[in-house]
Design a protein around this nucleic acid. Structure first.
Lengths: 149, 149
DNA sequence: CAAAATAGTTGACAAAATCAACTATTTTTC
DNA sequence: GAAAAATAGTTGATTTTGTCAACTATTTTG
């Protein structure tokens, strides 16, 4: 019974992997790699947060993350302050430059995506939004339930 | 106007990246890497095909693909015959073992996904299928139109 | 207060991916 | 129909990305 849905999902995944690849390609003209861009996003939206917070959201390895944060620090994008409440953790926040870099990246990404969406009519765009939202709502249950690690 | 949709899509992408990661994790208990699994899929469904065919479908680098195919050949999963019609290309097809390996992998993947889908009711599953199909139909236009490379 | 847990860093590696140069054919062009 | 351009695939060198285990420094728990 669910057999057909399984095939639909797997086929969708192959397809959507291509879409994501397409969208991410523009990052290549950028100073950030894909995971870096994502970390930057988390920093911007989570401020102030800890490396552990980001690890949870992104399911990224801590050593890998640590090095990305180090790089950002060297590039003066990131400020780190040891937490007073808990001396083990470090509070992360973007510097003014960091925020600026994020905005630049973010806007370029938006522009690019908007460009692609022009290929659809307005009503198609609206439809798309509805379906995406529904897919997400349905899958959130699964994503949330699955035991991590 | 499209601004909101842009945000919806990007947010969906972050979310769905996690879903794909979740689904792919099981490959780790497998003798195949993610791109290897995908190449195997292409071989199984494209038989007989050429490396170029796979390159187009997967948007994978030719040298990278070449090495994956070499590995498959060494593992006796793949048979290669120089094309008579065009001496530059090689016709690829899975060996009996290769097909068997693909089926094993494929079934394990299906089982795993089916397991996850049990978290949804049957009507939710049906809904999901509908929305996925719609998203794909809508985005196919974009994916198809964009100039490659 | 000793033992266990948590936060993060570091070193050593392994896996994944890219780039350019090269061989061998086939197609194009004049 | 021969030289030039294009196509298919391979190989070597390298870079990027990601993982694993061991370690330091705190904090929490019993």
């Amino acid at each position: 019974m669910a057999e057909q849905l399984v095939q639909e999902i797997r086929s969708f995944n192959r397809f959507y992997t291509g879409i994501i690849g397409l969208l991410d390609r523009h990052l290549l003209n950028t100073r950030f790699s894909l995971p870096e861009a994502r970390v930057l996003y988390e920093l911007f939206h989570g401020e102030p947060c800890t490396a552990s917070n980001i690890m949870e959201n992104m399911e990224i390895d801590k050593s890998y993350l640590s090095r990305i944060l180090l790089k950002f620090t060297k590039q003066k994008l990131l400020l780190r302050v040891r937490s007073e409440a808990d001396g083990r953790s470090v509070l992360l926040s973007l510097s003014a430059t960091g925020r600026q870099e994020f905005r630049k990246l973010n806007e370029a990404t938006n522009r690019q995506l908007k460009e692609l969406l022009k290929l659809l009519s307005v009503s198609q765009q609206e439809e798309l939004a509805v379906h995406l939202r529904s897919v997400r709502d349905l899958l959130e249950k699964i994503h949330g339930t699955v035991i991590k690690k």
